[in-house]
Design a protein around this nucleic acid. Structure first.
Length: 559
RNA sequence: CGGUGAGUAGCGCAGUUUGGUAGCGCAACUGGUUUGGGACCAGUAGGUCGGAGGUUCAAAUCCUCCCUUGCCGACCA
């Protein structure tokens, strides 16, 4: 590519922004902001995206995944069936068509793909489909450039299996694919188990990269074992008022538990289900629901908030209020009346469990779903089990922030049980944030002059910079010769503008081209070509007739 | 959604306190001289000062409302 036929979009104005990544992206002509959280991808950036997409596509195709493309606009109905219309809340982009029908700009595609695949007769399972597509999320506050934007590019894959063993094996092999992929693009990633969020499921792993701008924090022990930090510890402190209320309930629970065990020693606590009564304050209405969770787990108030939109107030009735309303201790509280009942996902497989009756000293035994009573829906309500670090040990651990770039989920039958009638099908889903990967790459690959792309993803592999080409026929001839010989083999940028060398170098350095060739009259007289390796900060002079051999070795061209 | 800034030429900004001709740097265009780190000289073009209303002889500047947007918090895989 010649620069006169191309558009660089580089800019030299100092952008006052704390975020180095964002600065380099603007200066290097990768993106331009259109509106809050919405960005235009310019040629320099798009080329990198396309290279990353090529690499991941090759990997997945080789592994037997099948590519398809689902629409970004989805009807409201399937989101209502899975109940995620409410779970997602305000983060879901909503549209109205000319008939006032509500449509959704999809942040993810579990519902659609499950409905598609599960109702198709001729599919032999296991199968895994993937797509690379723009996703939408109406962020409360978009920030940090493309790190948290309202439209972003994601690769999402969905696998379907007939049994658990098959799913588990596939899930594990996906981790290996991701490892290989991140290795190919020169990113050091770390993997840790994570909570499932509103995507749901049984288990999930997230892939992350260290980043000064990352929004999550982690502790690293001297043995390089990673301990998840932030999330809960942080939130407990910040939301103290509401959390304290829960703590109080737990405390009372435990007290009661002791009392009850003394009276009835034959209760199997592992089969006991805790019941909470919760008041949700809408703008003017009050909604009351029962929430069921296993006895050994804690209710996650954040997840509950998310379920019923963040902006509403939620009150969990404490011991005193329960006594007033139901005339029983909270330990004996059980679902009754016409209130809606929701239960934690992990309770779905419970058999013959124990439940409160809302009458002191009485409990239901051997209760089963659907037989004795049913809940409105199952969802994720419990806190994840995290390893907490004791305060004394803290000083030995390094605290680092990180950025999530990939997340995979064992969905099990969360969606297939809703959309699939015949077979019992288990699912997994596998996300990869393409645009976030670019942020991570920039943060880990730059110097004070600009971005330095890893060769595998670089927008241009090699830049040719001729000095005063239009006045020196030697330089003109040789640079064109070099360009024409190489341009079919690799992505190459040839600066044919009538500019000073400083300007050309600045541009190419901002764009992030990893290797540069400088051609000047003085060096040509000595039959030499200047070669710059930006990453290793190395400048060397290669004999003119050996330049192709040299480049061949470096870039593995097929000359 | 709370706190707090900002909106003036394509981009980055000054001017607002104290109302009185619309400015600077980069980019663009024309001509010339330059060519190893963002060139220089001379010239040209580009603006409803975010929008609406108000005060005034006179508003980018003062007042009111609205829109857009940055940062911090809250939220967020």
């Amino acid at each position: 590519m010649k620069t006169t036929l191309y558009s660089l979009f580089t800019s030299y104005n100092i952008v006052c922004h704390k975020n180095i990544i964002f600065n380099f992206m603007i200066k290097g002509g990768l993106i331009r902001r259109l509106s809050s959280g919405i960005y235009i991808w310019l040629p320099n950036g798009l080329r990198v995206i396309n290279n990353i997409i090529d690499i991941i596509k090759n990997k997945l195709n080789r592994f037997g995944l099948i590519e398809l493309f689902m629409p970004a606009i989805q009807p409201l109905k399937i989101w209502e069936i899975s109940n995620r219309f409410f779970e997602y809340g305000d983060e879901l982009f909503k549209l109205k068509d000319r008939n006032n029908k509500i449509l959704i700009l999809s942040p993810t595609h579990e519902e659609l793909i499950t409905k598609l695949v599960c109702n198709e007769k001729h599919i032999n399972f296991p199968k895994c489909f993937y797509q690379i597509q723009n996703k939408f999320r109406d962020e409360l506050r978009p920030k940090l450039g493309i790190l948290r934007s309202r439209e972003f590019i994601m690769k999402d894959a969905y696998s379907f299996h007939l049994n658990k063993k098959c799913l588990n094996e596939f899930y594990l092999s996906f981790i290996e694919i991701y490892k290989e992929f991140f290795n190919d693009i020169n990113l050091n990633i770390y993997i840790k188990e994570a909570r499932c969020g509103n995507i749901g499921g049984d288990k999930s792993h997230e892939f992350y990269v260290f980043s000064d701008y990352g929004e999550n924090k982690i502790y690293i022990s001297p043995q390089k074992i990673l301990y998840p930090y932030s999330y809960y510890v942080k939130k407990k402190e910040k939301l103290c008022f509401k959390i304290k209320k829960i703590k109080k309930i737990f405390y009372l629970y435990k007290k009661n538990k002791k009392n009850v065990v003394k009276i009835k020693k034959d209760i199997d606590i592992s089969k006991f289900i805790k019941t909470f009564f919760i008041k949700i304050f809408y703008k003017k209405k009050i909604k009351k629901i029962f929430v069921l969770i296993p006895f050994n787990k804690d209710l996650d108030i954040i997840k509950l908030y998310k379920l019923y939109f963040m902006s509403f107030k939620i009150e969990i009735l404490d011991e005193v209020k329960i006594l007033k309303v139901f005339k029983c201790y909270s330990f004996f509280l059980g679902p009754n009346g016409d209130y809606k009942i929701i239960a934690d996902y992990s309770l779905k497989n419970y058999r013959n469990f124990i439940l409160g009756t809302s009458k002191n000293n009485y409990l239901y035994f051997n209760v089963n779903w659907n037989v004795d009573f049913s809940v409105d829906y199952f969802t994720d309500l419990c806190k994840c089990q995290f390893i907490y670090i004791k305060k004394k040990k803290k000083c030995f651990y390094k605290k680092r922030s990180f950025m999530e770039v990939g997340h995979i989920f064992k969905l099990m039958d969360k969606y297939s049980s809703i959309f699939c009638n015949k077979n019992k099908i288990l699912m997994g889903c596998y996300g990869l944030g393409i645009t976030r990967i670019i942020s991570a790459l920039i943060e880990h690959n730059h110097d004070d002059r600009g971005i330095i792309w890893p060769v595998s993803v670089s927008n241009f592999k090699l830049g040719i910079i001729p000095i005063n080409m239009y006045n020196c026929s030697n330089v003109y001839k040789f640079s064109f010769f070099l360009y024409e010989k190489l341009s079919n083999l690799i992505e190459i940028l040839f600066d044919d503008r009538k500019l000073h060398i400083g300007k050309m170098l600045t541009d190419f350095e901002l764009i992030g081209i990893p290797y540069l060739v400088v051609i000047s009259e003085i060096l040509l007289l000595e039959n030499k070509i200047e070669f710059r390796d930006r990453k290793n900060k190395r400048i060397c002079f290669v004999p003119k007739n050996e330049i192709f051999i040299f480049l061949n070795k470096l870039l593995k061209l097929s000359l």
